[in-house]
């Protein structure tokens, strides 16, 4: 019974705590925690100089810059258009709205590899969109811009689905109240709607950003994967693995894991702040 007192577990009329809690912790440890810790243990064993040499080589630094930079740009695009889409879905009515709303989630449901080849087909120099962009001097496929396009596709639902409930909860009444007090549409947006949804928008941005940094499947087809130019960090890990350089792969993976845990903590803090503000 020692572990129970340790956990502060109180006797309950409902059965099954030992069994379900035990299985949960067992599965979590075996599938998630122990394998993840392998990355850090392996990294700890490789020595500082070797770690820096691999994890912060020029090629790796450029790959981080692309992964984080493109993810940030894509998340920003999604913050703007995601807010617009969420607003339109919550506040307006038009034929086919349910279908549109369902399609917003397509990036969650569509396998990333399928998204990757579809986007490449669209933005290649003979693709539906690429054929118009190429003459204008805009090269999307097989360039860093392609990475942004893929990550924009992947990230949209994170912003829409985070902002939507907050906007619905805010109600149309406050926008009407602002209008009745003489505010223009722009003032009503900047002073009433935006401040109210800002925390949710920031959370959506962070979720899209975190997903974008680690994204692999949708990016590698459209990026062209030119070293020093359009090579993302996860691809670098794969390449190290293909050369059986486990240490190199692990060093880059550890760097990325630390970064994504930092983002995860930021998201949790944001959500706690938002909840506190809404319920205070």
């Amino acid at each position: 019974m020692a572990t129970r007192t340790l956990l502060g577990y109180r006797r309950s009329i409902l059965p099954g705590f030992g069994l379900t809690f035990g299985f949960t912790v067992f599965a979590l440890s075996l599938i998630v925690l122990i394998p993840l810790s392998a990355v850090f243990i392996k990294t700890a064993g490789m020595g500082w100089d070797q770690f820096v040499a691999v994890a912060f080589s020029r090629r790796a630094l450029l790959a981080y810059r692309l992964s984080f930079g493109a993810a940030a740009i894509a998340a920003l695009i999604n913050a703007v258009f995601g807010l617009l889409v969420a607003w339109v879905l919550v506040r307006t009515d038009f034929p086919g709205k349910r279908i549109v709303s369902a399609l917003v989630d397509l990036p969650f449901a569509l396998p990333t590899a399928v998204a990757g080849i579809a986007l490449t087909a669209l933005y290649a120099s003979n693709g539906w969109i690429g054929q118009y962009l190429e003459p204008a001097g805009i090269k999307v496929a097989f360039s860093p811009l392609g990475v942004v396009v893929a990550l924009t596709f992947i990230g949209l639902p994170f912003v829409v689905r985070t902002v939507e409930p907050v906007l619905a909860d805010l109600g149309a009444e406050v926008e009407e109240a602002a209008a009745s007090l003489g505010a223009t549409r722009w003032q009503s947006f900047t002073r009433v709607v935006f401040p109210a949804v800002a925390p949710a928008l920031a959370t959506g941005f962070a979720l899209a950003f975190a997903r974008g940094v680690g994204e692999y499947g949708s990016v590698i087809f459209i990026a062209g994967n030119l070293p020093f130019r359009s090579e993302i960090a996860p691809l670098l890990i794969v390449q190290q693995l293909e050369q059986y350089n486990y240490a190199g792969a692990t060093a880059i993976a550890a760097t990325m894991l630390v970064a994504s845990f930092a983002v995860l903590m930021a998201i949790n803090a944001l959500q706690a702040w938002d909840r506190g503000r809404r319920e205070a």
Binding site: P35, L36, A38, V39, T112, A210, V213, G214, E215, Y216, G217, A233, P234, L235, I237, V238, L241, A249, T250, A253, M256, L257, S260, F261, V263, L264
Partner: peptide, 10 residues
């Protein structure tokens, strides 16, 4: 919050 590639790597 873990990159799919890292999920395989572990």
């Amino acid at each position: 919050s873990v990159s799919p590639v890292v999920s395989g790597l572990i």
